[in-house]
């Protein structure tokens, strides 16, 4: 090791030491020295970088075809004619696209009201259980469906509330008409929300449970001594304690407003029809890959990506203005 010039600054002290380094600027060692010191770290990062660049960032550049009259065989990415924003203009005259957009937004809004509070309530319920064993058992059960694939979840729902499902069997055996919830396009939004709750709400409670555990018991005790009952403690201590997490997750959800998932809708599209089930991602798939209008589909996908990015930045800004921590307060 070279003794004269100090090789690369002590690593992990890093973030804590960063401000100190800023106040008394030290000349950075030459990059060659740093390379001699840090090459094992670079070698370690190499496989990850190959995969991240090779399957994430390089294809991201392929979004230029959204501005091209893309010809997959004769032109390719480099030889196709540039047409500017033509595809984007066409998107907004396309009734299918507009339907996908409205469906997506209404599903997001619906789930914000009917899905979002469920993990919070589940966490409150689990947190309130005095018996450690019961709580642990409940946690094990509610986390489980998160690890099932959408294919499985939909297969399970088919067997429960589908046309030949258990509920129909039961109704028919008792002289009622069977019902088929899986192909009814009017109630589709209810169906997808229940599926989302069944699959993900339990796991979604984890983050709220952690926030609940972080609230100091002394606060509860002081409030109780001052005569606050359990509902007032819930309102004045528990909910304010959860607020940062709730705001954080709301921001993330709003930033994700155009993203309601793909598989769930793709898998059920043939059963309920595209009228109700067409969402952004299925539109991208059908217009792009199935029909073969790659440039058009890519334009829809890029639109979604850009709007999503703007939304998440805006939501974060609003959170900061409201005095919350937001998502990227650190950097």
């Amino acid at each position: 090791m070279t003794a004269g010039t100090k090789p690369s600054p002590a690593p992990a002290a890093g973030e804590a030491a960063a401000p100190a380094r800023r106040t008394q600027p030290k000349p950075r060692p030459h990059w060659r020295l740093r390379l001699r010191h840090d090459w094992p770290l670079l070698v370690m990062a190499l496989p990850m970088m190959i995969l991240v660049w090779g399957f994430w960032w390089i294809p991201s550049l392929g979004n230029v075809i959204a501005f091209q009259d893309y010809k997959p065989y004769t032109g390719g990415v480099f030889g196709s004619r540039i047409v500017g924003f033509t595809h984007f203009q066409a998107l907004f005259g396309d009734p299918e696209f507009l339907r996908a957009l409205t469906n997506t937004l209404s599903i997001t809004a619906f789930q914000l009201v009917f899905y979002f509070p469920i993990p919070i309530m589940l966490a409150l319920l689990m947190h309130s259980l005095a018996s450690e064993r019961l709580r642990s058992m409940l946690q094990s059960v509610v986390y489980l469906p998160y690890f099932f694939s959408w294919v499985l979840v939909i297969a399970i729902f088919q067997q429960m509330v589908g046309g030949a499902g258990l509920l129909s069997q039961l109704l028919r055996r008792n002289g009622f008409e069977g019902l088929d919830w899986m192909t009814n396009s009017d109630t589709f939004i209810l169906l997808v929300t229940s599926q989302a709750i069944w699959k993900d709400a339990g796991f979604g409670a984890i983050i709220f449970l952690a926030a609940l555990a972080a609230i100091s018991p002394a606060l509860y005790e002081a409030a109780a001594v001052d005569g606050a009952g359990r509902w007032r403690r819930l309102w004045h201590i528990t909910l304010p304690g959860l607020r940062p997490v709730i705001v954080l997750l709301l921001i993330l959800r709003l930033g994700d407003a155009l993203n309601v998932g793909f598989e769930q809708f793709f898998l059920q599209r043939s059963a309920v029809g595209s009228q109700a089930s067409e969402v952004f991602d299925t539109f991208v798939y059908y217009s792009g890959i199935r029909v073969g209008d790659f440039d058009y589909g890519a334009a829809a996908g890029l639109f979604k990506g850009v709007v999503g990015l703007v939304l998440i930045l805006a939501a974060n800004k609003v959170a900061h203005m409201l005095g919350e921590r937001g998502v990227y307060s650190r950097s």
Binding site: F55, L61, V284, G288, I289, G297, A298
Partner: peptide, 11 residues
């Protein structure tokens, strides 16, 4: 926050 999108990855 930035996703390549389905079509470019597919191609």
């Amino acid at each position: 926050v930035i996703f390549p999108g389905l079509i470019p990855v597919y191609l």
